[in-house]
Design a protein around this nucleic acid. Structure first.
Lengths: 141, 141
DNA sequence: TATTGTTATACTCTATAACTATA
DNA sequence: TATAGTTATAGAGTATAACAATA
């Protein structure tokens, strides 16, 4: 039986997103990471020293929810949390976190490439302008 | 600080989806409905008598998770669950559910129209082909 | 044997409130 | 006063396993 809501953009977007997230989760599972954890390690690699709260603002993760995620990554030896401010924690990758980074990037790249590959070439260039129109920068501030 | 993952299609899709879901949730809150509940009432309206399990397959909601959702809608007097099979429950809208339907459709239509309106006209026609490529029919069977 | 619905359970994600310490 | 981090808590969403009743 066909889903009568297939033609609704918002609904189709949600279903596509959920299908892609499930795929990414499968790719990251062998690394022992959830997508939010992989995302955090990627961003900390690009911006070493970023504070927990700045990272939370960037990813729309609230302070209260960042704590157990960052603490978990630290406990597993992937992330270092050093006081930068007296009240702020600056995040950097541990050696082990750096070592994992290659595998994380490989999985993310493979995932994103697979997403792009599935889009018919005629439509491909239109996706990012559409998504950025629907998810403007700083839309939650 | 700008999110360095903005340019990744999969990531941007997830963020756009989550922003749109939050918008829809706000629209449906005055009706006392979550999006999954509104979706169920819409589909039951279009396909009266559909069983709980068929509905679950269509929306990718597992049997175990359909039970409390459908029971909740029945308890609130919006949905009727009548045995069709001896083991299956056929779903139909109650009079109260039918009465709510107009408001639900209005909110969903307004939401979908608002999504479409935000997409620059040049790109608009490309969204659905892209989403259907990423969310093929029956992708979970 | 397979399917339907149910219950129990658990993990993830998200959200709010209240607290401490620091700027 | 405002910000950063933490703890506790609660509500959704999603997943699996096991069971009874029915096909």
């Amino acid at each position: 039986m066909t889903d009568p809501l297939r033609s609704l953009p918002g609904y189709a977007l949600r279903r596509a997103s959920s299908a892609l997230m499930a795929e990414l989760a499968e790719r990251l599972a062998p690394l022992g990471l959830r997508h939010v954890e992989a995302t955090i390690l990627l961003i900390v690699a690009r911006q070493p020293g970023i504070t927990q709260s700045a990272l939370g603002r960037m990813l729309d993760i609230q302070r209260a929810n960042m704590t157990p995620i960052a603490a978990g990554l630290e406990r597993r030896g992937l992330l270092l949390r050093v006081p930068s401010d007296g009240r702020s924690l600056g995040l950097t990758l541990s050696a082990e976190g750096e070592a994992l980074l290659t595998a994380i990037k490989a999985q993310i790249d493979a995932h994103e490439a697979s997403v792009t590959a599935r889009i018919p070439p005629t439509h491909r260039a239109h996706l990012m302008p559409i998504l950025h129109a629907l998810w403007p920068e700083g839309d939650t501030e």
